[in-house]
Design a protein around this nucleic acid. Structure first.
Length: 279
DNA sequence: ACGCCCGCCTGTAAGC
DNA sequence: TGCTTACAGGCGGGCG
């Protein structure tokens, strides 16, 4: 769920809301959410008393830089939420696992029903040595401008389905099931096309579709689906779901050619596409 | 290198 | 109505 656009929306709000604030107290109830640490105590002492300097993002990871050259890293997994509260009196939602209270008494809360998400503290300067997942991430499509020629060389070196490749965090960072379908529709390419079969023109279309789709999604503050968990830092849902062309639209008509959109099962996952517009 | 399945989780909804 | 099953999907790991 939270994919690059949703994580980016949260990052921007976090940078505005919590950067510069000092963490006065930390409460950790869900041990699974801080599973990289040996104990609750180890996590709390690494954070307490520190100030959040800035908030950046790498793929789906949120990196809160702390003073003392450490970083508080968050990955929301499938159902993780970061929520701001004015103070401790604001009622706690279900599945609240970690609470940071700042010196102005406002709070940052980590809520996660399915507990696939996590938070941990690591060295900021050696973050890539200590966190292999971050070191292995591919290019961030919103972060670094990559020429479509470079992108093309990377694509044609792989003999795998486009959908697999787009969702491979080591290839490009931040794309999940929703946006891979939207990107492939925008590019007019089938999910099961083999990467090394793409023409130069198709590579150009795909690289443009990645950037445009993700930028549009950020502009509309991400996607919140009916059964989905995503809300922003203030508890507000996104608006991009109303602009989805294919995702979760099986049986509805293609916005381009009006043919019925179909769903395929692939690796136990749903893929939505138009059989006419995507080749 | 790639495809594919599993395990980790809970909430929701469809099916019997 | 009430139980069971499927599904949602990010990600690492394992196996063929």
């Amino acid at each position: 769920m939270p994919e690059l656009p949703e994580v980016e929306v949260i990052r921007r709000d976090l940078d505005r809301e919590v950067a510069g604030k000092k963490i006065k107290a930390v409460e950790a109830t869900g041990l699974r959410s801080i599973r990289r640490h040996k104990s609750k105590k180890a996590f709390i002492s690494a954070v307490e008393g520190h100030t959040i300097k800035s908030v950046t993002r790498r793929g789906k990871y949120i990196v809160m830089r702390l003073d003392g050259d450490t970083a508080l890293v968050a990955h929301l997994g499938m159902s993780g939420r970061l929520l701001r509260a004015k103070n401790a009196k604001v009622p706690s939602p279900k599945h609240l696992h970690v609470v940071f209270t700042f010196s102005d008494n406002s709070q940052l809360r980590f809520v996660d029903p399915r507990t696939f998400g996590e938070m941990f503290v690591t060295s900021y300067l050696e973050i890539e040595d200590e966190v292999t997942e971050l070191a292995h991430l591919g290019v961030d499509p919103l972060d670094e401008a990559m020429s479509w020629e470079t992108f093309g060389r990377l694509i044609t070196s792989r003999h795998t389905k486009l959908k697999t490749l787009l969702m491979d965090q080591k290839f490009v960072a931040g794309i999940g099931n929703i946006y891979s379908d939207e990107i492939l529709f925008a590019a007019g390419l089938r999910w099961d096309r083999t990467a090394d079969s793409l023409s130069a023109e198709e590579i150009r279309r795909l690289s443009r579709a990645i950037i445009e789709t993700l930028n549009e999604a950020v502009k509309y503050r991400g996607s919140s689906l009916a059964d989905e968990q995503y809300v922003d830092l203030f508890g507000q849902p996104g608006g991009f779901q109303d602009r989805h062309q294919v995702y979760d639209r099986e049986g509805k008509s293609c916005p381009r050619c009006y043919r019925t959109l179909v769903r395929a099962r692939y690796s136990n996952r749903s893929t939505f596409f138009c059989e006419a517009c995507q080749i």
